[in-house]
């Protein structure tokens, strides 16, 4: 056997070590990002989640005005945690549309009463069909939709106070 071949196992092993050391040093994110960024929202229509607010349909997003699409549920703890930030965004004039995932109307009413209601419309997604349709994999998630109904940005997890200016910026970009 030639000499260089004997070093081959060591080289392969070094490659293995480098490969696995990388994610140890910088743990990769476990988020699953929607691949629909830059693409139009798929066609859907959701019935109103409660009696006071209208439901949602794709056409509602094509009036030229950017808005946020928030996937949430009353049973989701981080959703309550991000409620103040959503309220803040609403006060700054942002229109927020909600997708209420697998929820009972009574629970939703109580959730809105406790945490405030920043939503202009809320559609009820009882079987996760729209959630899957827009490439969302959990709650809460927030999408920036531009005035033509195109998905411009996806925020995974709850909105922290420091995310508010970032989202305002993304909405501004979406106007262009």
């Amino acid at each position: 056997m030639t000499r260089w071949k004997l070093w081959l196992p060591l080289v392969l092993f070094a490659g293995f070590c480098a490969l696995v050391a990388w994610p140890l040093i910088r743990p990769p994110s476990t988020d699953v990002h929607s691949q629909l960024i830059g693409k139009p929202l798929p066609q859907f229509a959701l019935k109103p989640a409660n009696s006071t607010l209208p439901g949602i349909a794709t056409a509602d997003f094509r009036d030229g005005k950017p808005r946020l699409l928030n996937v949430f549920a009353s049973w989701c703890v981080p959703c309550a945690a991000e409620a103040p930030q959503l309220g803040e965004l609403q006060r700054q004039g942002v229109e927020i549309v909600g997708i209420d995932l697998r929820d009972h109307p009574e629970d939703l009413a109580q959730f809105l009463q406790q945490n405030g209601n920043p939503f202009a419309r809320i559609g009820a997604d009882d079987i996760g069909a729209v959630q899957l349709g827009i490439g969302s994999s959990g709650v809460p998630e927030t999408f920036v939709i531009d005035g033509k109904g195109v998905i411009r940005y996806q925020h995974i997890g709850d909105i922290r106070a420091e995310d508010v200016p970032m989202l305002l910026g993304k909405l501004k970009d979406a106007e262009a």
Partner: peptide, 8 residues
């Protein structure tokens, strides 16, 4: 690593 060096 050391076993493979020894091997080589």
């Amino acid at each position: 690593g050391s076993a493979l060096v020894l091997f080589a």
